[in-house]
Amino acid sequence: MRETELWSRLRQLLGPAYTPVWADSVVHASLGGRTVTEALAAALPVKQIWLAACLSLEVPEHER
């Protein structure tokens, strides 16, 4: 998964206006206490970030 796909999927789930707010403010324990934005800056694998977001947003397994 590429970063562009991550942002695209997040926009589909949250909408274009809320996505950056959510990505900058929601802290994920599975990302070491980082937000999505911080995890990307720390060069964590994008797939790991997506899966953490899926858990937080309760995305059904078949849509991950």
Rank of each mutant, 00 (worst) to 15 (best):
R2E: 10
G32Y: 02
A53K: 06
A53C: 14
A29E: 11
V27H: 05
P20D: 04
G32R: 03
W7Y: 14
R34I: 07
G15W: 14
L44V: 01
G32E: 01
R9P: 06
E58S: 14
P45V: 04
P16T: 15
W50D: 08
R9E: 11
R9M: 14
V36I: 15
Q48F: 01
Q48P: 01
E3R: 12
V21N: 06
R9V: 07
L14F: 09
E5Q: 15
S56E: 13
Q12A: 14
R9F: 05
P45F: 14
L10I: 06
Y18I: 10
V26P: 00
P16E: 15
E58R: 13
V46T: 15
R64A: 08
T19N: 05
W50Y: 09
W50T: 08
W50E: 13
Q12F: 04
L57G: 10
A23N: 01
L13M: 13
P20T: 06
L57Q: 14
P16Q: 12
T19M: 15
R11T: 13
L31S: 12
L6P: 05
D24H: 05
A17Q: 15
C54E: 05
K47L: 06
R2K: 06
W22G: 02
K47P: 00
D24Y: 05
R11G: 00
E61K: 04
S30F: 10
L44T: 01
Q12P: 06
W7D: 02
A42V: 00
T4C: 00
A23H: 06
E63D: 13
T19V: 10
P45S: 09
S8K: 11
L51A: 05
W50S: 07
S8I: 00
L55M: 10
L44P: 02
S30A: 14
E38M: 05
L10W: 09
P16F: 11
A41P: 02
D24L: 02
R64Y: 14
V26C: 00
P45Y: 07
L44W: 04
G33W: 02
A52G: 13
V59W: 04
G33L: 12
M1H: 12
